[in-house]
């Protein structure tokens, strides 16, 4: 198909004035901008000394919430493990020692290296037991170290409650209405 001449729209460059063509005023204007930036406030965060404030809906390390009696809130329903697209949650359920629920997680292991921090486990959880916190600097020396078990995840809960860096959904570990269990 030949392109008809009238179908082509030529875009002309804008006309330049004498001052534009001289380029020197433009360069001076550019210098003004860059020099202005030299005195503008800096955005650098001095990281190890100065911690950045993460937004409260940041998706960082997981935690397992505790209820008022300091028991693990999880009822081992496997919904998070089912929802997880990375298959990083491994739960072993056992009959609950407490009368108000049937099951509880005997072990609850999250592979933090496999996790993609999508927050789907958090959405799936019917009792608001699993949550993503705003802790972002997760490090370890071995792969085994990065497999977070139940104790570790509960200790993340304790730590975030103590420092007041709770996720926005369940501030202070107080659970939402979905977590109300039948008496």
């Amino acid at each position: 198909m030949p392109i008809p001449e009238n179908a082509v729209r030529w875009v002309e460059p804008p006309k330049m004035s004498v001052l534009d063509q001289l380029y020197i005023p433009a360069i001076i204007e550019g210098l003004g901008t860059t020099i202005q930036h030299m005195f503008a406030p800096k955005v650098t965060v001095q990281y190890p000394e100065q911690r950045p404030q993460m937004p409260p809906n940041y998706r960082g390390v997981h935690r397992l919430n505790r209820d008022e009696q300091q028991r693990v809130k999880c009822v081992a329903c496997y919904m998070c493990a089912t929802a997880c697209p990375a298959h990083c949650i491994d739960i072993v359920a056992a009959p609950s020692p407490w009368p108000d629920r049937e099951k509880y997680p005997e072990t609850f292991v999250i592979d933090e290296l496999r996790c993609i921090y999508c927050g789907m486990c958090e959405e799936a959880c019917p009792v608001d037991a699993i949550e993503l916190t705003s802790l972002f600097d997760l490090t370890g020396l071995s792969r085994e170290e990065m497999m977070f078990d139940k104790e570790k995840l509960l200790s993340v809960f304790d730590q975030t409650v103590k420092t007041g860096s709770d996720p926005i959904r369940t501030r202070g570990g107080k659970l939402g209405p979905a977590a109300e269990l039948p008496k």
Partner: peptide, 8 residues
């Protein structure tokens, strides 16, 4: 360079 780019 850093100061012009709002860094330290």
């Amino acid at each position: 360079a850093a100061y012009m780019q709002a860094r330290i």
